[in-house]
């Protein structure tokens, strides 16, 4: 036997005078005269939070590497350290952490002086789920996720990030947002735009 659960039945007055209809109608008309909360997207864009999981990038060597981890990995693999180039030490931990490992295509090369460096680092964004495991796995804070989210492209080939693209995204990120405090929302204005009527206490 199915137990039947009902809402409180409408009273006679509510039935005759459509009071429940009126309640709904009054709500919609009150909303209609409030301020709109949308962004006019192509003309006006919200800045994503710093933690946003967008397209990937390689941070470049600029003297702010996590120490002593970076030096340890460089010594272990005899990596050629060149400022302005990717921090990648070709440890393949990102590939091992990835749920879809075939999206990574990583190769290193040996320089004439015996040092090594990364030569190929392709990420196929068609397969990526943006879970961020590779970022967590990266021991030298090289691979990271940027705030780039408008990623439509005209061909499947454009969806593959190669090493130079990753470095470009990384340099751009380090210039723009590296020093920002790590917060959910990029700035208070962006948050106020969405939730101004809750008047949150910021601190």
């Amino acid at each position: 036997m199915v137990k039947r659960v009902f809402e409180k039945p409408l009273s006679l007055m509510e039935r005759v005078l459509f009071l429940d209809f009126m309640k709904g109608l009054s709500i919609t008309i009150r909303q209609a005269f409030k301020r709109t909360i949308t962004t006019h997207y192509p003309y006006e864009k919200l800045k994503p939070p710093k933690r946003f999981r967008g397209f990937f990038g390689h941070k470049v060597i600029n003297g702010k590497e996590p120490q002593p981890a970076f030096t340890e990995w460089v010594e272990r693999f005899k990596i050629a350290v060149e400022p302005g180039k990717s921090r990648c030490v070709v440890c393949l931990l990102c590939k091992r952490a990835c749920p879809v490992p075939q999206l990574f295509e990583i190769e290193g090369e040996k320089l004439p002086d015996g040092k090594r460096r990364v030569s190929i680092f392709n990420m196929n964004m068609m397969l990526c789920t943006f879970c961020g495991f590779c970022v967590d796995a990266c021991p030298v804070d090289c691979l990271f996720q940027s705030d780039i989210h408008e990623t439509a492209s005209y061909s499947r080939k454009d969806a593959v990030l190669d090493l130079s693209t990753l470095e470009k995204i990384g340099k751009d990120w380090q210039n723009r947002r590296e020093d920002e405090p790590d917060r959910i929302w990029a700035d208070d204005n962006a948050r106020m735009r969405l939730w101004y009527e809750n008047s949150p206490k910021l601190g």
Binding site: T28, I29, Q31, A32, F33, K34, R35, T36, I37, T38, H40
Partner: peptide
């Protein structure tokens, strides 16, 4: 326009 403002969107702009 009406539907937009009921849902707090501006509608076509």
């Amino acid at each position: 326009k009406f539907a937009g403002h009921v849902q707090r969107r501006p509608g076509p702009m």
